[in-house]
């Protein structure tokens, strides 16, 4: 399968700060990739480079296009929702639909109207009259009506309550995603999306700390809850992280055989959140 996104030595500097530092990766079609990183890690800058919103050094190709130079062509096949509710507040819902219909060749007005009938959003309302959840619903309805190969979601559910967040991801999976499409999501609420991801990437200080399919995480990373003497022996194998919990030492191992760890205590596959924290702490050492 050919790569949808291909990055080779991509960097972006702001003065002396390297927001993205010599990053290389590939994203294949039909995946749901979670891009996880702390604030200021370079996630948003990397997404902006992918979306052609900012220029960068190195080789970056999205669907065979140079995102910065060929942004218009690229935008016909990419959709994105940014980390703030960015729909223009002065606009009426009907005007918004008219405008997108006029400028986007792959937008289906019919589908957008259909999706909106499941919400309480009125065509005559202005965006500023809608609640934050409704603005996100509206934005998602528009995005889901665009036949695009790559959907980029940057903190799409920030500030939404749990009901909306669940609904948002359910809609995305049921009504949008198929093997033709690729979704790239960044979020802080990693627990909520880890079940829907096929791939995961951690980024910190502009560098990629982890780039792996979800299914191989269990093969590579193992958590052991050990106590006393067993804990000391396990520590000898060089865990990447260690926490105390209920009097036991919970250690996280990378690339250590499960059979080898079994004797020290109870084994678990770490949650993405735990793995993330461990990787960040390891990188800071």
């Amino acid at each position: 399968m050919t790569s949808l996104v291909s990055a080779r030595g991509v960097s972006k500097r702001f003065g002396s700060i390297r927001a993205v530092d010599n990053v290389s990766f590939e994203i294949e079609g039909g995946k749901i990739l979670g891009l996880i990183g702390p604030n200021g890690a370079g996630k948003t800058t990397l997404l902006k480079a992918l979306l052609g919103l900012t220029d960068c050094d190195g080789q970056l190709s999205v669907m065979g296009l140079d995102p910065f130079k060929q942004r218009k062509e690229l935008m016909q096949n990419i959709c994105f929702i940014a980390d703030v509710a960015v729909l223009p507040r002065w606009m009426k819902v009907s005007q918004l639909l008219n405008y997108v219909e006029a400028v986007h060749p792959n937008f289906s007005r019919h589908r957008a109207e259909e999706l909106l009938t499941h919400t309480k959003i009125l065509r005559n309302s202005k965006v500023r009259q809608l609640s934050k959840g409704m603005v996100t619903q509206l934005h998602l309805s528009i995005i889901m009506s665009i036949d695009a190969k790559l959907l980029v979601l940057d903190e799409p559910t920030l500030g939404l309550d749990i009901i909306f967040r669940k609904e948002f991801y359910a809609n995305l999976l049921n009504d949008y995603f198929d093997e033709e499409r690729t979704i790239l999501i960044t979020t802080h609420q990693v627990e909520e999306i880890e079940n829907l991801l096929t791939d995961i990437m951690f980024i910190n200080d502009g560098k990629i700390l982890l780039d792996s399919p979800m299914e191989s995480l269990a093969d590579t990373y193992t958590e052991v809850a050990a106590s006393g003497d067993a804990a000391d022996r396990a520590r000898g194998l060089g865990p990447i992280a260690e926490n105390q919990m209920f009097g036991k030492s919970v250690m996280l191992f990378e690339g250590v055989n499960r059979e080898q760890l079994q004797e020290f205590g109870e084994l678990r596959t770490p949650s993405v959140a735990d793995l993330f924290v461990a990787k960040i702490m390891e990188a800071r050492k």
Partner: peptide, 17 residues
Amino acid sequence: AERKDKSILFWRSLPVT
């Protein structure tokens, strides 16, 4: 205004140069 209310991100997400 489009930068102030951040709607520029939405405008630039559409295929318009």
